[in-house]
Amino acid sequence: MTSHSRDEPLTKLNEPESNDSHDKLNHARVPNCEAIATSSHVFIHAITAIRPGEEPFIDYRLVADGKITDEVCAEYA
């Protein structure tokens, strides 16, 4: 993995032999990355500088516009 700044996307997390990039992301209350969802993809973007060898972290907590209801939680389950 190469070093990234907050202004450039973190585009390569998975090893060439693996398509499971999600297994490279762990939770942190103060993450260094954020997930940006589109209708067809989820992009991981560095929000702080990430040095070579440093692990990328995202916040697993659900963030949604408006009130988080049981229905909203079920949609993301």
Rank of each mutant, 00 (worst) to 15 (best):
M1W: 03
M1T: 11
M1Y: 04
T2P: 12
T2S: 13
H4Q: 04
H4Y: 15
S5K: 14
R6N: 07
R6C: 09
P9Y: 05
L10C: 15
L10P: 00
K12T: 12
L13S: 01
N14G: 15
N14A: 15
E15M: 09
E15K: 14
E15Y: 08
P16D: 12
P16W: 03
E17C: 10
E17D: 15
S18M: 00
N19Q: 10
D20A: 13
S21P: 01
S21E: 06
H22A: 13
H22D: 09
D23M: 10
D23I: 11
K24V: 10
K24C: 13
L25Y: 04
N26H: 14
N26R: 13
A28N: 15
R29N: 11
V30G: 00
V30W: 07
V30C: 03
P31I: 05
P31R: 07
C33Q: 04
E34A: 14
E34T: 13
E34M: 14
E34P: 01
I36K: 15
I36H: 12
A37C: 11
T38P: 03
T38Q: 11
T38I: 10
S39D: 13
S40H: 11
S40Q: 12
H41S: 05
H41R: 14
H41A: 03
H41P: 01
H41L: 07
V42S: 03
F43I: 05
I44S: 10
I44P: 09
H45N: 12
I47A: 12
T48L: 13
A49V: 10
A49I: 06
I50D: 05
R51Q: 15
R51I: 02
P52N: 03
P52T: 06
P52I: 08
P52M: 04
G53P: 00
G53Y: 03
E54K: 12
E54F: 05
E54V: 05
E55V: 06
P56Y: 03
F57D: 01
F57C: 09
I58S: 02
I58H: 03
I58K: 01
D59W: 00
Y60H: 06
Y60I: 06
Y60T: 04
R61L: 09
R61D: 11
R61F: 02
R61P: 01
L62R: 02
L62P: 00
L62D: 07
L62N: 02
V63H: 12
V63R: 15
V63W: 09
V63T: 10
V63E: 08
A64N: 09
A64M: 08
D65K: 05
D65I: 01
G66C: 08
K67C: 08
I68R: 01
I68W: 07
T69H: 08
T69G: 10
T69C: 07
D70Y: 03
D70V: 02
E71L: 09
E71I: 07
E71W: 03
E71A: 15
V72L: 09
V72W: 06
C73R: 15
C73H: 10
A74L: 06
E75F: 13
E75T: 11
E75C: 13
Y76H: 15
Y76S: 03
Y76K: 05
A77L: 12
